[in-house]
Amino acid sequence: MVRLLLLARVRQEGTSQFLVRVVPLSLLNVLLLFAVLATADGRGFDLIGFTLQYGYFVPMTALSAAVGTWEVELVAGVAEEFLLRPSRGLWARLLTSPVEALPPFALFAVLILLAPLPCAQRLAHLAMATGMLVVFLLLGTVLGYCFGFRHEKAVNNFLASVTWVLGFGPGPFFGARTSGVARLFPGGFSIEGDFALEWLKLAAVTLLAGGLLWWGSKPRRQRVFTR
């Protein structure tokens, strides 16, 4: 099923177009978002600062990838099939979306492993980045399932806003700001090395995804959007 889903996605877009979007364009976009404000005052490229911003980039790319893959289902008009028998379909979706989130994740994984940090911290950051990838892929998959079929623009609206909504937390726009509400955003604790609370937050996100899945599986008040 995973292979067939991936095949549908790649054929819809064209192989070369898909590869170009997923690998070089997504990496260059990450670079642009990091550097657009960071290098404005003539400073060089702060590699360690960039590395520790995985708390913004990994969830952002994971959410975008997981929600974005539902576009194919919207085009195909297969909402009913997914809504009536969600479990295997959602697993297949969840296993498909890492393909699109993997290049930025791999970049950060390599940077974390090469970072001039104590070994234990490097491993903790790597485990945290992996946890974020998995949990936000799960959340994105469930969000697409719950809201993607409700409105023709739901997926697009989400994709257009996720980069900027997450940007209010610690990341390329506000740097390592960890005061107040910013802590609620992904990476709010891990950027200062407080991993336990960050894991708790990920657990809460997982619960939220579970709740959304239950809610989304109930018969709906509104018809699904069909093209």
Binding site: M1, L4, L5, L7, A8, R11, Q12, V72, V75, A76, G77, V78, E80, E81, F82, R85, R88, G89, A92, T226, R227
Partner: peptide, 21 residues
């Protein structure tokens, strides 16, 4: 609507059979 436009008939049936179990 109701099937993936870029999958063949056989591929579509295989996918939806997977969805059903």
């Amino acid at each position: 609507l109701g099937f993936y436009p870029r999958l063949t008939a056989a591929e579509n049936l295989r996918f939806f059979s997977g969805l059903k179990g």
